[in-house]
Write a protein that binds this DNA or RNA. Structure first.
Lengths: 240, 240
DNA sequence: CGTCACGTTGACTAATTTCAATAACGGTGG
DNA sequence: CCACCGTTATTGAAATTAGTCAACGTGACG
């Protein structure tokens, strides 16, 4: 057995419960270990894949941080999400056999490549994997609906607070502090994701700081009043 | 063989190419005919499913028009899409075994119910169906990204033009005119979907009419200058 | 230690919302 | 069949949010 196969066994990966089905027999787990064929390193600023690239695999993030963005025919861009360890990327490519968005590393990253044809064939043999793949795609759809709600009905303050709370919650699941985070993206990228300009994002951070909700120092954010932020997210004082 | 089984055979359905995989053997097609167990009628204004309902099936629209909407904890709503004949609904429910949005009929409608456990088991036996299901989910994700682009980076005029062109294109595929359409939803529902108020939607329609791009009479819309509308959609004069 | 990308802040502008009044339609029941 | 009522749509004027333009800091990194 080649050494690398051991290295990339999902069964021994600490992120397993984020990427893989949980209730699964030892025998099935062994089969799933053949899903990831390669690890790939992506340097900060470099694409994992780009729009138009042939689709061939899904990727599980092992370390690092990504953004995905779509581009309109006229060139304007929209960040569609920020992805972190344990999350799956590439689902957009299945429908047309080519990727429809760009995935860019916001810091040096490593991903596990899972060839799509292997996912399909293994899914037929391991029902737990089949269900799992469906759930991952469904989760992405539900997440997207949440972003639509944010973009379609929240004001700037609510969007920014929502963004922070979302990051915080996802980082917390991964064992990080609930009270502190380091932003891996620029104000412009946050703005694109939230449908705001970078100035509005910056001003909103400053206002939150003035109000004693957070402490911001560049990309270092400390949460002083999480409940207060949550109140802003849930504030019924919306416009539409 | 019960009469109803004949009635609801996908193999004889005129919408087959919209819902079902195309390149498929006669034997496989016969198996797929067992996917749809029941037809269900939904009266205008009534839900096909609601948030919190147990998830058990996907639905293919046979006739009629739906909207889906999500609701925030504070009660504000966001329309996440409008669905028409041949489109699949219910994917949001897979991840958590319960629906996360409401699906409401905008006119009397009929849907084909496909029990999810049957989809899963048949998918394992018919790879073309497996791939098809994945593509449907991926298409939904790509569609959602398009909506994010619209909500995050387009101005009101662009959103409304984009909305009209999208409806037109989908209706055209279904054999309707490219120059005329009947809106099945209110200005408020359009506004919710586009992240605008109903007044802004109304005003934008009026402006398009003033400019000779369309003719609007309540929910009857005639396209006078499709190219002009497309120019607005693609206009690079965006803000963000 | 300088340069450049990133971030902050201010003043002004423009787009969209909000509030309000009116009009038109469609379904319902007399 | 027609009148009525509630819902839906239009339009105007005022208010507000967020965007734009511009200047200035500041930190990271070579």
């Amino acid at each position: 057995m080649p050494h690398r196969a051991l290295q990339i066994a999902c069964s021994r990966c600490s992120l397993r419960e984020l990427c893989m089905p949980v209730d699964i027999s030892a025998a099935d787990m062994e089969r799933l270990d053949t899903l990831v064929t390669t690890r790939r390193r992506v340097k900060r600023g470099k694409p994992l894949y780009s729009r138009g690239d042939r689709f061939s695999a899904l990727y599980a993030i092992r370390s690092g941080f990504f953004k995905t963005r779509v581009t309109a025919s006229d060139g304007r861009e929209q960040v569609t999400g920020f992805q972190m360890a344990g999350e799956i990327m590439g689902l957009d490519g299945i429908v047309s056999d080519e990727h429809t968005c760009d995935a860019l590393a916001l810091e040096d990253a490593e991903v596990c490549e899972m060839p799509y044809d292997r996912i399909e064939s293994l899914s037929r043999e391991v029902p737990a994997l089949q269900t799992h793949v469906h759930k991952i795609m469904s989760r992405e759809i539900v997440r997207d609906h949440g972003v639509m709600l944010l973009l379609g009905s929240m004001r700037a303050e609510e969007r920014v607070a929502s963004f922070l709370m979302n990051l915080l919650q996802r980082l917390h699941v991964r064992g990080f502090s609930e009270a502190e985070l380091v932003l891996r993206m620029t104000r412009e990228e946050i703005g694109s994701y939230l449908g705001l300009t970078l100035e509005t994002v910056s001003r909103t951070f400053s206002r939150f700081a003035d109000e004693g909700l957070i402490e911001v120092k560049h990309r270092q954010v400390r949460i002083l009043d999480g409940a207060g932020l949550q109140t802003i997210v849930d504030s019924a004082g919306s416009r539409r």
